[in-house]
């Protein structure tokens, strides 16, 4: 079942085409990795799905419904039921860990009892139950990463968007959190679109990889298929 679909989507910034007639689909429950060097258009794809920007050409569908058309956001971001982990995490510094998780639940009108229940369950899952009342600034890098994940997941989104969420971490923590992301995905079964420029990170997390270069898709396939074609596409992606 298709959850996200791009139909001939193009996008330009200041006259430079950053996406060129992109077509792809994301199936329910898969972990699609967008892999490619900086500036290849990966983050633009996430921002288009999120609804922060509109395509210049083509259309985007989520759950079979057109959400963006050329130059027009049909469904605003707050109504797309998405989760997103930002590259800089974007944790609200004035709210506690619990407050960060609660904000979206309140906005969506959940009752106090339901909010508390969901938050407790999610904090338990990411191992941050005892940090509920801490502010983001009082947590380590890894803990902040988990808060960002929990904040996005607590809303049970249709699609989870992750924009290089582990790029600022050291190698050891990066590897540990990759495994946590996979474990969370397996237990919750959400659809995930994950942007990275790190080949190893991509191959470990993905169920499918989409390699991009200069605004175009150069290869889409399973991890095995992309690995096998590495010789032909390797100049395009960082090792």
């Amino acid at each position: 079942m298709k959850v996200v679909e791009f139909k001939a989507v193009s996008k330009s910034y200041n006259g430079t085409r950053v996406l060129k007639d992109i077509d792809f689909q994301v199936e329910k429950g898969e972990r699609l990795i967008l892999l490619g060097p900086s500036g290849c258009g990966k983050t633009t794809i996430l921002r288009l799905i999120a609804g922060f920007i509109a395509p210049d050409q083509g259309s985007i569908e989520i759950g079979g419904r057109v959400v963006s058309e050329p130059g027009r956001i049909v469904v605003p971001p707050e109504e797309r039921n998405l989760g997103m982990v930002f590259q800089d995490l974007a944790l609200w510094p004035h709210l506690s860990v619990k407050g960060n998780l609660e904000f979206g639940l309140k906005a969506k009108g959940f009752s106090k009892a339901e909010r508390d229940q969901r938050i407790e369950k999610m904090l338990e899952m990411v191992g941050l139950r005892e940090y509920a009342n801490r502010k983001p600034g009082e947590l380590s890098g890894g803990q902040q990463q988990r808060v960002a994940l929990a904040r996005a997941l607590v809303l049970e989104p249709t699609v989870m968007l992750m924009d290089e969420p582990l790029s600022s971490l050291d190698t050891e923590l990066n590897i540990r959190l990759r495994r946590e992301v996979i474990a969370l995905h397996k237990s919750l079964g959400f659809t995930m679109i994950y942007v990275t420029h790190d080949r190893e990170e991509a191959f470990e997390i993905a169920t499918r990889v989409m390699v991009m270069s200069e605004g175009e898709i150069v290869k889409v396939g399973s991890v095995k298929e992309v690995r096998n074609s590495l010789t032909s596409i390797s100049p395009l992606i960082p090792s």
Binding site: A50, F52, P76, P77, E79, F86, F103, A107, A152, L155
Partner: peptide
């Protein structure tokens, strides 16, 4: 991104202004 995160979480603009942008 702090505002966008609130938007993704389902908050409409007045709510984002009131609870995210204003306190910050």
């Amino acid at each position: 991104s702090l505002e966008e995160a609130a938007q993704i979480a389902g908050a409409k603009w007045p709510r984002r202004m009131l609870f995210i942008i204003t306190p910050l």
